[in-house]
Design a protein around this nucleic acid. Structure first.
Lengths: 155, 155
DNA sequence: GCCAAGGATGTAATAATGTAACACCAATCG
DNA sequence: CGATTGGTGTTACATTATTACATCCTTGGC
C-alpha cells in the first residue's frame, strides 16, 4: 500500500482495489459476500462504464450459473451508495470507483466513440455546482456532472 | 413579446414558446409539422421533465389516435438537437427549453421528491466544466450537469 | 401530368434497462 | 429452539429505447 499518487488520497491497483472496496463496505456495516466480491471483480475488470446487464453476464460466466439481473442491480446500488462504484447517468452504466476512500463528487468524461470514461476530481467545480444549487434555494444531494465528447485517443 | 426578464435573452410564455420553437426549427431548415407541434405542445404542457412515454400518451390523447413511441422519440431527439428541448439524463426524461434562442449548456436541479426541475444558467460553471475536460485532453461536446436533491418546496 | 427523390410518419417487432413481490436460506441472538 | 434479519433466488413485469421497413406526401424536374 504505497502509491502516493494523488493529492486527495490513494489510487489502487486492480488487485487491491477489491480490498479497498471490501474495507469500505465492512466499515459501513455491510457484508462482503462471495457474490458481492464477484460482482465487484467483474465491474473492476472493465476500464469503462458498463451496463448492469454486462456485469450480469460477466458474473454469470464467472460463477458458472445464471445470476439474475435484479441481484446484480441490488449489489450495484449498494456499491454506489457506499462510494465503491459510480453510476454514469448519461450512459445508464456503472463503473468501479478508483478511490473509494474519499467521498468526492465525481466528474466523468465519457467518450462517445469508444465508450471509455475518465474520472476527474475538481472540488472547486463540484463545489460551485452545489453552491449554485443552494443559491437557487435547492438542497443538493447528488450532483451529476458528466461530459460527453471525444477522448484524446478518439478525437 | 415583451418580457425582458433575463440578461441572456427571452423567456417565453407558454403561448409563444411554441412560436419560438417553431421559428428555431424553421431557421434550422427543419419543418414544423402538425405532429411536431402536437408533441411540442404536450411537452410544454408540463413544468417538469417527463418521459417520452408520458409525451406519447399525451400526444395520443390530443390527436385522438394512437401515436407510436418511436415517432415521439424521433421528434424529441430532433427537438433536443435543435435546442428546443433538453434531455434530463438522470431522469430519462425530456423538458421543453425555456429559451430556445440561446445555446447555453444547461444546469438542471431535479427534485427527488416532486420530480420538478429548475433550469439554471451559469456560463462560468459550464465553461469551467468544459475547460476541465479540455485540460484532460478531452474534447467536450455536450456537458451533462444536473443536481439531484430537494427543491425549495419539498425540502 | 408524371415520375423520382427526400422527408416525415406509420407499423411491428424487439432490445435494453430497471423494479416488484415473494420464496428460501443462513446466521445471529434471545 | 424459535424469531428475526439480511442476503439471494425466482419469476414476472414495467419502463425506456431502437431497428427495420412500409407508406405517404410534397417538391422539383421532365
Amino acid at each position: 500500500m504505497a502509491h502516493p499518487a494523488h493529492s486527495h488520497g490513494q489510487h489502487h491497483s486492480r488487485a487491491d482495489l477489491a480490498a479497498a472496496a471490501q474495507a469500505r463496505l465492512k466499515s459501513a456495516g455491510e457484508q462482503w459476500t462471495p457474490l458481492r466480491a464477484t460482482v465487484f471483480a467483474a465491474l473492476a475488470g472493465y476500464d469503462r462504464p458498463v451496463s448492469a446487464y454486462d456485469v450480469t453476464d460477466a458474473v454469470s460466466t464467472a460463477s458458472g450459473r445464471r445470476i439474475a439481473a435484479n441481484s446484480v442491480y441490488r449489489i450495484l446500488d449498494l456499491f454506489v451508495a457506499n462510494n465503491v462504484a459510480s453510476r454514469v447517468e448519461s450512459a445508464n452504466a456503472f463503473i468501479a470507483n478508483v478511490h473509494p476512500d474519499c467521498p468526492h463528487d465525481c466528474i466523468f468524461l465519457v467518450c462517445d466513440r469508444c465508450g471509455g470514461a475518465t474520472h476527474v476530481d475538481d472540488d472547486r467545480i463540484t463545489g460551485d455546482v452545489r453552491s449554485a444549487a443552494l443559491a437557487a434555494g435547492f438542497t443538493p444531494e447528488r450532483p451529476v456532472i458528466e461530459v460527453r465528447g471525444l477522448c484524446a485517443n478518439c478525437a
